[in-house]
């Protein structure tokens, strides 16, 4: 098991190098350059060239790539933003923490809402307790997160004046963004858990458990849910990864200084150091989350545990 974890962590190295390479390649293929953007239309080509030289943007693609990787690995230096002249790490780290916090709050909320309701609706299939939550989930899943965010803003900020409309000064500032990012995945979690549970409770081993006289509680929680959880865990892990990458809508709408909105903003300025470092952090985080999902899988599923045990043996 340990070997598996170490292997997966080592796999991060070529992944990150590949991500950096692709980013440099894509950036080099897109039109425009940061100096022209920074200097504006009135600057001469000589001035643009000089600033590009000062920024190190004029270097050949491979030289830029090798230099970047060297500095990142040897000096732990992600460079300086073209736009703000600040250390890239100092710029992105606080934003990264904000995004990860938002994503975690979002995933906890969406799981707390979606999974229990998913189990409940599966157990009570065709009853009113199934129909109403399923319909609500169907409706919510169809609402884009920015529309949901606007509705929340209108209700809680404008009409009720309970919550601030922007910023992250207090915990209350996180509530609307967290709801905006968690409600759509909660709806998906509900639908996913329900279908997984429905599939599970129709399996032979559930029927066998019932035939053996096990209580309904034991049948549902021990036999059906245990097996139904496997795909749900994957879905939750994927949702967390998506939230870290994709909270940009909520970040923009609620003016939250997160990493997604930072990358989107800096693409406009072709601020390569920030775009690349931000994307690296996101990709590392996504890979780690996927590793955690695999580990949880192994914990939940005895077949996978046994497989690792055999490999070890």
């Amino acid at each position: 098991m340990y070997r598996y974890v170490i292997n997966r962590l080592l796999f991060l190295i070529p992944s990150v190098l590949g991500v950096i390479f692709i980013l440099f390649l894509v950036m080099s293929m897109t039109p425009g350059d940061p100096a022209r953007i920074l200097l504006g239309d009135a600057a001469s080509q000589a001035q643009v060239d000089e600033l590009n030289r000062q920024l190190g943007y004029d270097l050949p693609f491979m030289e830029k790539y090798v230099r970047y990787v060297y500095k990142m690995v040897v000096e732990q230096d992600f460079g300086v933003s073209y736009f703000t002249k600040q250390s890239v790490f100092e710029e992105i780290w606080p934003r990264y923490k904000v995004t990860v916090s938002l994503a975690f709050i979002g995933i906890v909320l969406s799981s707390l809402i979606g999974i229990p309701f998913g189990i409940y609706t599966a157990v009570r299939q065709y009853s009113l307790w199934d129909t109403i939550p399923s319909l609500i989930a169907f409706f919510i899943a169809a609402i884009p997160s920015f529309v949901l965010g606007m509705l929340l803003l209108y209700a809680f900020s404008l009409q009720l004046n309970w919550l601030p409309s922007y910023g992250i000064e207090s915990f209350s500032s996180f509530i609307m963004p967290a709801l905006a990012v968690s409600i759509p995945p909660a709806a998906f979690n509900l639908r996913f858990t329900k279908s997984s549970m429905l599939e599970s409770i129709r399996q032979d081993y559930v029927r066998t458990a019932r035939a053996k006289g096990a209580s309904e509680h034991t049948v549902i929680w021990k036999h059906a849910l245990h097996n139904a959880l496997l795909p749900v865990v994957t879905n939750v892990g994927m949702s967390l990864g998506n939230l870290i990458c994709g909270a940009v809508v909520a970040e923009k709408l609620f003016s939250i200084p997160g990493i997604g909105s930072l990358i989107v903003d800096r693409i406009t300025y072709k601020d390569e150091p920030v775009i690349i470092a931000g994307t690296i952090l996101i990709s590392v985080c996504f890979t780690v989350v996927m590793l955690l999902v695999d580990l949880i899988y192994a914990y939940i599923d005895p077949r996978i545990r046994a497989k690792y045990a055999r490999v070890k043996g």
């Binding site: 909320l109 309701f117 004046n161 601030p164 207090s170 915990f171 209350s172």
Partner: peptide
């Protein structure tokens, strides 16, 4: 279990509201 989940969500919301700037 459902009740506990709902209470947790409600606590989270109320905790936030209590420190909301007016």
């Amino acid at each position: 279990l459902l009740a506990i989940s709902l209470v947790l969500v409600a606590c989270l919301l109320l905790a936030g509201c209590s420190s909301a700037p007016k």
